[in-house]
């Protein structure tokens, strides 16, 4: 299901995020006792999943932060959000809304 640019992804409160000095991070889901490693840019996206930022504004932040074209950022960001949703790490309504 496509992610809407106006959706406001929100991380699940129960998920414990472990930021690491190299910028990467671990997301631990106590419900499934599973840890997910994520890259520095994914960690930045995770931190912006506060229920306030829209997908479009997350992309604006990434574009300002990384020297990467918007189309690539959008593809990677949407893929990450879909993965987070698929693994039940996000709260709230579906990202397509």
């Amino acid at each position: 299901m496509p992610v809407a640019a106006t959706s406001r992804p929100k991380r699940l409160e129960a998920i414990e995020a472990q930021p690491l000095p190299d910028g990467s991070g671990l997301l631990f889901d106590p419900a499934s006792a599973t840890a997910y490693p994520i890259s520095p840019s994914a960690m930045r996206i995770w931190e912006l999943c506060d229920g306030e930022h829209t997908v479009a504004s997350i992309l604006d932040d990434l574009e300002a932060h990384y020297d990467v074209d918007r189309a690539t950022l959008e593809r990677d960001c949407l893929k990450l959000l879909e993965d987070l949703a698929e693994n039940n790490l996000l709260a709230g309504p579906p990202l397509s809304e």
């Binding site: 472990q18 690491l20 190299d22 890259s39 520095p40």
Partner: peptide, 11 residues
């Protein structure tokens, strides 16, 4: 590899 990837493998 990232510290998170290494931690994940060590887990």
């Amino acid at each position: 590899q990232s510290q998170a990837q290494a931690a994940s493998q060590l887990l």
